[in-house]
Design a protein around this nucleic acid. Structure first.
Lengths: 113, 113
DNA sequence: TGCACATATCAACATATGTTCAATCAAAGA
DNA sequence: TCTTTGATTGAACATATGTTGATATGTGCA
């Protein structure tokens, strides 16, 4: 036993409750589809209606709407109605940071593979 | 037309290349499974061998190994061999931040739903 | 070399996911 | 009220994903 370089009990990480893990996993999974991630990336720059999101991502509206539904369910985005339009935006700055973080990490600039 | 409160071209977000989006989505997806996320959470506190990871997450070794393979493929973890053991750890501090961020966000403390 | 331990891989299966088009709902204006 | 426009929902389908137990690899030691 005894560890070969392990940094056990180093940072006092309270193990997250199962429900937290599940919600967090749901969020990651929702962002874990290239097409949905493209939507999230777009929303980094502001609020858009479904038709715009569809156009800018080259998808049918119903497809965009389905993708937005998943993002909404997992609390990655919020929406508001304005007349016939529905505007979607990132849920909060936390999500903003998350998206930027992962896009940044995936950038080859980080040459960490 | 014209926007109803939209914050277009606000933050100069360079649209990420397709390949970056895909890699980023792969990372999110890899973390987007509750069981794999539990492994990542465990690794927040250090380096562990497969047998320990299996034991602590209540899984068979072959199951743990499969899960680790996915995490490895998406560059969320790294590994090193020490004798017969294989030690896994988070790939870098970027991943550490990502995991903490999402677990934090999923915490009900944030009451943002 | 032969055995034992730690991991990894394979293949088969059940389940989950994403897409699509048609149908429906909701708001606005004639 | 009827029509138009924007958005959502439903159902069917193809594809992807996660799990499992058997098998293989790989390392250390006798």
């Amino acid at each position: 036993m005894s560890d070969s370089g392990g940094a056990r009990d180093s940072a006092h990480v309270a193990p997250a409750a199962q429900s937290i893990i599940e919600r967090a996993a749901g969020m990651l999974q929702a962002g874990g589809d290239p097409e949905r991630l493209r939507i999230l990336e777009l929303l980094l720059s502001g609020e858009y209606r479904v038709s715009e999101i569809a156009a800018r991502t080259g998808a049918e509206m119903s497809t965009a709407s389905q993708r937005l539904r998943v993002l909404l369910q997992e609390n990655l985005v919020k929406r508001r109605r304005a007349g016939r339009d529905m505007f979607y935006r990132l849920a909060d700055c936390h999500v903003d940071k998350l998206i930027r973080n992962v896009l940044d990490h995936a950038d080859p600039k980080h040459l960490d593979d």
